[in-house]
Design a protein around this nucleic acid. Sequence first.
DNA 1: CCTATGTATTGACAAACGTGATTTCAATAG
DNA 2: CTATTGAAATCACGTTTGTCAATACATAGG
Lengths: 117, 117
Amino acid sequence: MAVDLEFAPKTKRPAGEPCCEPVVYPDVAREQAERIATIAKALGDPIRLQLVDVLRKHAGKVCVCELVPLFDLSQPTVSHHLKKLREAGIVGSERRGLWAYYYVIPESLEEFSAWLS
Amino acid sequence: MAVDLEFAPKTKRPAGEPCCEPVVYPDVAREQAERIATIAKALGDPIRLQLVDVLRKHAGKVCVCELVPLFDLSQPTVSHHLKKLREAGIVGSERRGLWAYYYVIPESLEEFSAWLS
DNA sequence: CCTATGTATTGACAAACGTGATTTCAATAG
DNA sequence: CTATTGAAATCACGTTTGTCAATACATAGG
């Protein structure tokens, strides 16, 4: 948060003198940045973004067998992307018999959404 | 957008019969997903997220010489991250004499922000 | 048991990524 | 001109990523 940087027009300095005082970056901001960046990274692939998009538009849970034909990708690749989203905490999954159903965990996107606004 | 997926409890099918009708995924959604994923990918690194965070908190432009000491990174590495952000269209830069000033392009985050909300 | 089916994991490989050391470029001061 | 300084580009490196083929795992039906 409150990193207090001053913006002032600069002129060349007498050489040896540092350009500006080093600013301490609060650790809390770093941790938050890491959390948010983890979410952003998981969303940083078009396939995964579309997966989340589809899952979000269905309030309920969607079967993997419905997700795979949406993309021109092999089933293992889709499964890999779903795993990434799971590891990032963006989606959850549930097995029902042979089928696996995925759903978005809405709270996982809240901090990111708040930061972005 | 409107991908019409039905969610229905599944039972084992007679083998050979597909699990569900393939759904056509609209190209417009794909292009939007690619645009948004590009932004997300650029934000998917803690350093870059903090850079954007700092720049956003300063409505004006911030000198690179003020950004480098915020991180325990070499100047070329910070410059590299700034380049990534520039390539994603998230930030712009301006040279004023020896110094380079960076600023956030707010509109670049709008589509992402809207999608996320 | 055995077979079939949906999903996940493993292995492999090229491409991209994050980083630092070094170098190059641009602009200012003398 | 030369020397100096801030920033970007280049090179090198180990790591991670996205993808598929092949395999393994889990569950259901016979």
